[in-house]
């Protein structure tokens, strides 16, 4: 496995909030074309790890490598510009703005020519068409219009918008933090299909989830996070869900060779 270079990796990440140690030398690897699931108990530091990879948290120590080159993300837009898109658990959507505005928030397209260059006019029409296409791809947009405020959407629809935004712009890595937590059975299924669809286009995904069936269905590798560190990486084909739960809760210690898996 070591002959393939990971597309995104982290070594020895540390982050303290006062007395609380959120990451204690965490390592991470994501390989091209794969889905790596990150599981761990509440408070294990999954979210902080993910935020460090997406630029929302700057680690105190440690290194992050994208395609072998070290990167320093100071802000979320640094990671976004590098091609890493994240769907946060709280979705990071602006409720009063429209679906289209939200999809393009922070990367608005401007009109060509003088209107765009000098007067900085946004190209509403082109952005709306693009947003509509992307949502249609996910079968999410037989609903009303693209200009309605996100706050008028249901939880599942909002999730759909957030996932569509990441899928539309993520060119190197997509990070999904609990993408199905707020969804019903049918909507979850659609998001899972979308995730497989994104992987089949060759874009690797980091999936954080508490939903073991979903994790075992999708993931190529499962990164078990415990006490701010990577405990082990397991292969979902060779382990059961109860093994995974035992590792992440500390009920069972992994064999040492697993750490290299």
């Amino acid at each position: 496995m070591t002959n393939v270079q990971p597309i995104l990796s982290a070594r020895g990440l540390m982050k303290r909030y006062g007395q609380v140690v959120a990451m204690n030398g965490a390592d991470f690897d994501l390989y091209p074309g794969e889905i790596t699931a990150v599981i761990g108990d509440n408070g294990a530091g999954k979210s902080t790890l993910i935020k460090a990879l997406s630029g929302a948290v700057v680690p105190d120590h440690g290194q992050i490598f994208l395609e072998g080159k070290e990167v320093h993300f100071k802000r979320p837009d640094d990671a976004r510009n590098a091609g890493i898109e994240t769907v946060y658990q709280n979705l990071a959507l602006s409720p009063a703005l429209s679906i289209a505005d939200n999809m393009f928030l922070g990367r608005e397209w401007r009109k060509p020519g003088v209107m765009g260059k000098v007067f900085r006019k946004m190209d509403h029409a082109r952005m709306q068409d693009f947003a509509r296409d992307k949502l249609n791809d996910l079968g999410l947009m037989t609903i009303q219009n693209i200009n309605q405020a996100v706050e008028t959407l249901s939880g599942g629809q909002r999730q759909g918008v957030a996932v569509a935004r990441a899928a539309a712009f993520g060119s190197k890595v997509i990070i999904l933090d609990e993408p199905t937590a707020a969804l019903g059975v049918k909507e979850s299924r659609r998001v899972l299909e979308l995730i497989q669809d994104v992987r089949s286009r060759g874009i690797p995904i980091i999936l954080i989830s508490h939903n073991m069936p979903h994790v075992f269905e999708l993931a190529d590798r499962i990164h078990v996070h415990r006490l701010g560190q990577r405990l082990c990486v397991i292969d979902p084909k060779k382990h059961t869900m109860s093994d995974a739960v035992a590792y992440m809760t500390g009920a069972k210690e992994p064999d040492t060779e697993l750490e290299l898996a």
Binding site: A56, R75, P76, R80, N90, A92, L97
Partner: peptide, 12 residues
Amino acid sequence: DDPDAAMLSGIR
């Protein structure tokens, strides 16, 4: 509207 969402969306 939501400063956290704005920050995570990459707005300075």
